[in-house]
Design a protein around this nucleic acid. Structure first.
Lengths: 144, 144
DNA sequence: CAGAATCCTGTGAGATACTG
DNA sequence: CAGTATCTCACAGGATTCTG
C-alpha cells in the first residue's frame, strides 16, 4: 500500500503546481498533458516500442525471432511491449494453438503507417550519430 | 556504493545471456546494442527530448518559457534534458550574464535537422491517436 | 529568473525459476 | 517454444527548499 506523499510542510503557494485535484477527486494536470499527441508520444517514448515496430516492418516474426533480432531485450520486456502494442492495435498476435506453441506477430494496418515515421527517425539516427558523438566528446573535453 | 548484484545461485547456462564480461573487465552486450542507430535512438527515447526539440522548433526560448510551454515538466527534468541536449550538440545555450539571470536555448543546425522527423512523429500521433484509443477501449472491453 | 541540492518514490527492467 | 511469476535493484523523475 502506497504511503501518503509525506509532504513536509503543506504550505500554499507552491511555485510550480503541475497538478490540481478535480471535483471528482482525481488528479489532473493543469494545462494539457492530456493532449492527444502527447498521449501517443508517451506511447512511443519507451525503450523498445520503436525497435519492435522497426523489426516487424519487413514482415511477421515469431516470438523467438523477435527476441533474437532485438539486441538486449529481455523476454519479459518483449512480452510486455508486445502486449501493449497489441492493446493499442498496432501489432496483431496470432496463436496457432499448436504444441509446442507457435505464435507470430505482425504489424496491423495502423502499425504499418507508423513504420514510415519510425524509419525517418532511424535514418536520422544513423546519419547524425557521428556528429552527436563528436559534439559529446568535444563537450566532455571541456568539462571532464 | 552500489552493492554486488547478489545473484542467488550463479549457475552457468542461463538461457538468455545478453551480456558478457570483456577482457578489460567491462560488460558489453553480446550482439550489437552498440550499433550507432541504437545509440541515437536511446538518446531520443526519453520522455522529454522530443517535446523540447518540438517546442524549440519555432525559435529560441528562455528557460521559463520552455517550462511553461511543456506541460508537466519539472524544472529538474527540464534542466537535465537541456544539459544533455547541449552535450550532444542539439541545443545551444546562451547565458546573457545579466542580473537577474537571462538564458535562452535554441536548436543548433543538427538540432534543426531533427525537427523534421520529430514533426513527422507528432503528425502521426495527432492523426492516429483516435484509432489507438478506439483499439484500446475495444481491447479493454474484452479483457477488463 | 534560472538553476542547484536534497530527499523520496514509483516504475523500468534484469535474473531466475516454473509450466503447458 | 512461448510464455508466467517473483524478486530485486537502479534510476527516472517529482516535490521542496535555497541561492546569486
Amino acid at each position: 500500500m502506497p504511503q501518503e506523499p509525506a509532504r513536509r510542510r503543506p504550505r500554499p503557494g507552491s511555485r510550480h503546481p503541475t497538478r490540481v485535484r478535480l471535483s471528482d477527486g482525481h488528479l489532473a494536470n493543469v494545462y494539457s498533458a492530456a493532449c492527444p499527441s502527447r498521449q501517443a508520444l508517451d506511447r512511443l517514448a519507451d525503450k523498445w516500442t520503436v525497435l519492435i515496430v522497426g523489426t516487424l516492418e519487413r514482415g511477421p516474426l515469431r516470438f523467438g525471432q523477435l527476441r533474437d533480432a532485438i539486441d538486449g531485450i529481455s523476454e519479459k520486456m518483449l512480452t510486455q511491449t508486445l502486449r501493449s502494442l497489441e492493446r493499442d492495435g498496432l501489432v496483431a498476435r496470432r496463436d496457432h494453438g499448436t504444441m509446442p506453441p507457435q505464435v507470430d506477430y505482425r504489424l496491423t494496418e495502423i502499425g504499418t503507417t507508423l513504420a514510415a515515421p519510425v524509419a525517418a527517425i532511424r535514418a536520422w539516427a544513423e546519419h547524425y550519430i557521428v556528429d552527436i558523438e563528436a559534439a559529446r566528446s568535444a563537450h566532455d573535453q571541456n568539462q571532464p
